[in-house]
């Protein structure tokens, strides 16, 4: 009987610990936001970029606590693999094989302590590499954004990169 009582005492102690932990810790559970709705946001879904002409990335980022960093990935979509995250669908060129496609992968920092950030980033588009000029056609433009806590959000756009 004594043991029974002892055991129950343990359970009560356990319950006490348990309920004291129930107090909600305030941690960030919200993802950052990429906003493409502004009139001058660029590029947008189905936009065209041109080899040899740098363009300016204009997007509005926001987070409830603090923004982290962002990354841009441009690669070919000749095989129509990529879905944009946007509702509008674009007219695609016929499927073709890639031989010397253009790839741009880069990560960019955001000044610390920001809840809102407007990009004003010039990205160069070279015309060729050692293997010759780049293939033109459908490309996939992929933006990824984190906040300070490691939450992330993504936007994928279908674009064309052509020669003017």
């Amino acid at each position: 009987m004594k043991k029974t009582i002892l055991t129950f005492a343990f359970i009560i102690a356990l319950y006490g610990t348990f309920s004291s932990c129930q107090k909600e810790a305030t941690v960030d559970k919200e993802k950052p936001v990429i906003d493409l709705s502004a009139a001058d946001a660029f590029p947008g879904n189905c936009d065209t970029l041109y080899f040899g002409e740098p363009f300016v990335l204009k997007m509005a980022f926001s987070d409830n606590v603090e923004l982290g960093s962002y990354s841009i990935d441009i690669h070919h979509n000749f095989d129509h693999h990529s879905h944009s995250t946007e509702i509008t669908s674009c007219t695609m060129d016929p499927i073709k094989e890639a031989f010397n496609s253009f790839t741009h992968i880069q990560n960019y920092s955001i000044p610390t302590g920001q809840q809102h950030y407007q990009t004003q980033l010039s990205i160069p588009l070279p015309t060729s590499n050692d293997d010759g000029s780049f293939d033109e056609g459908d490309y996939h433009f992929y933006i990824s954004l984190t906040d300070h806590e490691g939450w992330s959000t993504q936007k994928g756009l279908s674009i064309k990169i052509l020669y003017r």
């Binding site: 982290g68 960093s69 990354s71 880069q106 990560n107 990824s144 984190t146 490691g150 992330s152």
Partner: peptide, 16 residues
């Protein structure tokens, strides 16, 4: 596995 706020170009192909 702790998600950070950083991206990596060279080893991570621009992934988080």
């Amino acid at each position: 596995l702790n998600p950070t706020s950083q991206y990596d170009r060279l080893y991570g192909n621009g992934n988080q």
